[in-house]
Amino acid sequence: MEIKARAPGKVILAGEHAVVHGSTAVAASIGLFTSCSLRFHSDSENDDTLKLTLKDLGLEFSWSVGRIRETLSHLGGPFPLTPTSCSRETIRSISVLVEEQSFPEARIELATGVFAFIWLYTSIQGFKPATVVVISDLPVGAGLGSSAAFCVSLIATLLAHSDCVSLDKNQQGWLSYGDSDLDLLNKWAFEGEKIIHGKPSGLDNTVSTYGNIIKFRSGNLTPIKSNTPLKMLITNTKVGRNTKALVGGVSERTFRHPYAMSSVFNAVDSISKELSTLIESPAPDVLSVTEKEEKLQELMEMNQGLLQCMGVSHAVIETVLRTTLKYRLPSKLTGAGGGGCVLTLLPALLSRTIVDKVKTELESCGFQCWVAGIGGNGVEVCFGESS
């Protein structure tokens, strides 16, 4: 039996960078997914390999299961119910397996994802020959939580083939895990994110696991229930950014101008809190929805101005802002800034013609655009016969 899982990416609606300095941030799942399928090899196939196929990138990696068992014999797993950090000994051993693979020079950043794959697979399923295929709507390194969605969708397939979660494998369509199973999955995903990013906040994997909208401050996560469907235009500037350097730049500016930057962070905190309250507020009629959307747009626009104060905008981000403002649609960067992606709230009554015009103009600048719902379901799985 083949199992598939899909996990959403994420955007930060308000509070990026300021959250590092104690302010509130608001993040949401988006209707763009990373999907993962898992099929164990049968005895009749005589295929003793573990294969990872990144379909969108046209890349495949494979290892002999015997080679993996020999290299990671000290693990003694699998231990699906016990998420643990990757030990230094295991890091050294997996590094050898990863270094045996060929990575295109332009894709060397994928090595940490492959590293996380080996660790998560062997920790949860041990040394079984299988083929894992990954397909994603999410661009890598654009601030949309692609690595977390990869970890969450992978772990969802691995746990579904274990005895430690409760799923009806005869049920058709996409299924959701129960709360306790999601908690286990999220802990594993955090371990995967630690391998890829070193010191992640845990926000990306949490949003990808549980979905919906989350308020985040000082490590505390609070779910937010939206009473109004929200839709965003997401524009990928295709300009890569160094998150660590951008975070460091904000810290340096804070050191040079502590009082001014403290006021900036306090303002961002107020915006995030007001935005989360507004999202939860009821909107019983069209007029109420329109007023709510206008207020959300204003808050996002104010947040963008404060991000510019922090020094994390970029010429390409400003190009997106100018373009969408022609159509009276304010925008803000999402994530680290310095490139990456930009968010534009699309009001419910906005015509499809205007949306298409905005997309066409942005794409003519070389950008990539999607329209996606905000705050939808988290990770889901489905079962089917192997082809």
Results as ranks from 00 to 15, higher is better:
residue 38 L to G: 04
residue 356 D to A: 14
residue 229 P to D: 02
residue 374 I to R: 07
residue 206 T to K: 13
residue 179 D to N: 13
residue 169 K to F: 05
residue 358 V to A: 08
residue 232 M to S: 07
residue 342 V to F: 13
residue 106 A to R: 07
residue 357 K to T: 11
residue 106 A to M: 02
residue 166 S to G: 03
residue 46 N to M: 14
residue 110 L to Q: 07
residue 116 A to N: 03
residue 266 N to T: 10
residue 138 L to H: 10
residue 319 T to E: 11
residue 163 D to L: 01
residue 355 V to E: 12
residue 266 N to L: 09
residue 86 C to V: 13
residue 118 I to A: 04
residue 144 L to I: 13
residue 79 F to I: 08
residue 207 V to Y: 04
residue 93 S to K: 15
residue 348 A to P: 00
residue 33 F to Y: 15
residue 23 S to Q: 06
residue 229 P to H: 01
residue 374 I to D: 03
residue 288 S to N: 06
residue 143 G to M: 12
residue 256 R to P: 00
residue 160 A to E: 04
residue 171 Q to C: 11
residue 6 R to L: 09
residue 313 S to M: 08
residue 284 P to Q: 09
residue 296 L to G: 10
residue 168 D to P: 05
residue 168 D to Q: 04
residue 85 S to C: 05
residue 289 V to Q: 11
residue 1 M to Y: 12
residue 133 V to Y: 06
residue 317 I to C: 13
residue 325 L to A: 11
residue 266 N to W: 08
residue 305 G to P: 04
residue 273 K to M: 01
residue 207 V to K: 05
residue 142 A to M: 11
residue 192 G to S: 12
residue 372 A to C: 11
residue 366 G to E: 14
residue 301 E to W: 08
residue 233 L to K: 03
residue 278 L to P: 09
residue 268 V to P: 03
residue 140 V to I: 15
residue 202 G to S: 11
residue 85 S to Q: 06
residue 342 V to Q: 10
residue 192 G to V: 08
residue 135 I to A: 12
residue 242 N to L: 13
residue 141 G to D: 06
residue 305 G to S: 12
residue 263 S to C: 08
residue 247 V to N: 01
residue 50 L to E: 07
residue 346 L to W: 04
residue 197 H to D: 01
residue 133 V to D: 11
residue 240 G to T: 03
residue 100 E to H: 02
residue 295 K to E: 15
residue 353 T to D: 12
residue 153 S to K: 13
residue 90 T to G: 00
residue 262 S to K: 15
residue 381 V to N: 02
residue 109 E to M: 08
residue 78 P to L: 14
residue 326 K to D: 09
residue 73 S to W: 11
residue 329 L to W: 10
residue 177 Y to D: 11
residue 345 L to A: 10
residue 77 G to S: 09
residue 131 T to A: 07
residue 75 L to E: 09
residue 153 S to P: 02
residue 36 C to G: 00
residue 212 N to G: 15
residue 233 L to C: 07
residue 118 I to H: 02
residue 357 K to M: 11
residue 223 P to G: 06
